[in-house]
Amino acid sequence: MLTKKQLDLLEFIHTRLQKDGVPPSFDEMKIALDLRSKSGIHRLITALEERGFIRRLAHRARAIEILRLPDSISGGSTETGTDRSASADAGPAAANTDRAIGSAMDLPVMGRIAAGVPIEAISQMASKVTVPSSMLTSSGSHYALEVRGDSMIDAGINNGDIVVIRETDTADDGDIVVALVQGHEATLKKIYRRNGAIELEAANPAYETRAYPSDQIEVQGRLVGLIRSY
Rank of each mutant, 00 (worst) to 15 (best):
L7G: 04
L10V: 05
I13D: 05
I13G: 01
I13F: 05
T15K: 14
Q18N: 09
D20I: 14
V22I: 15
V22Q: 03
P23C: 14
P23Y: 13
P24M: 08
S25V: 02
F26S: 10
M29T: 00
R36A: 15
G40K: 07
G40F: 12
I41E: 00
I41W: 02
R43Y: 14
R43H: 15
L44N: 10
L48D: 05
G52W: 02
G52V: 06
F53T: 05
F53L: 02
R56Y: 08
L57V: 09
A58W: 13
H59I: 03
H59Q: 15
A61V: 14
I64G: 08
L67H: 03
P70F: 03
P70W: 06
S72N: 10
S72C: 06
I73H: 03
S74R: 11
S74G: 15
S74T: 10
G76P: 11
S77V: 10
T78G: 12
T78E: 15
T82Q: 11
T82E: 09
D83F: 14
S85P: 01
S87N: 04
A88L: 15
P92H: 12
D98I: 12
A100I: 12
A100E: 15
A100W: 14
S103V: 06
A104N: 15
A104M: 09
D106W: 13
D106Q: 13
L107G: 07
P108C: 12
P108G: 10
V109R: 06
G111R: 02
I113D: 02
G116S: 10
G116N: 09
I119W: 08
A121T: 13
I122T: 10
M125K: 15
M125F: 04
A126H: 14
A126V: 10
V129Q: 06
T130Q: 13
T130C: 11
V131G: 11
V131F: 13
V131Q: 09
L136W: 01
L136P: 02
S139P: 01
A144D: 05
A144Y: 01
A144I: 03
V147P: 07
R148D: 15
R148P: 07
G149A: 12
M152W: 01
D154L: 06
A155V: 00
G156N: 05
G156F: 01
N159V: 07
G160R: 05
I162H: 00
I162K: 01
V163P: 01
V163W: 04
R166Y: 00
E167F: 05
D169P: 01
T170Y: 13
G174W: 07
V178S: 11
V178C: 11
A179V: 10
H184P: 02
E185L: 15
T187S: 12
K190L: 00
K190S: 00
I191K: 03
I191P: 03
I191N: 00
N195I: 01
G196N: 08
G196I: 04
A197D: 12
A197H: 12
A197M: 11
I198P: 01
I198M: 07
E199I: 05
L200M: 01
E201Q: 11
A202W: 00
A203C: 05
P205F: 04
A206S: 09
A206L: 13
A206M: 08
Y207V: 02
T209P: 00
A211G: 07
A211N: 06
Y212G: 03
Q216N: 09
Q216F: 00
Q216H: 07
Q216D: 10
E218Q: 14
G221V: 07
R222C: 07
G225A: 14
G225D: 07
S229Q: 15
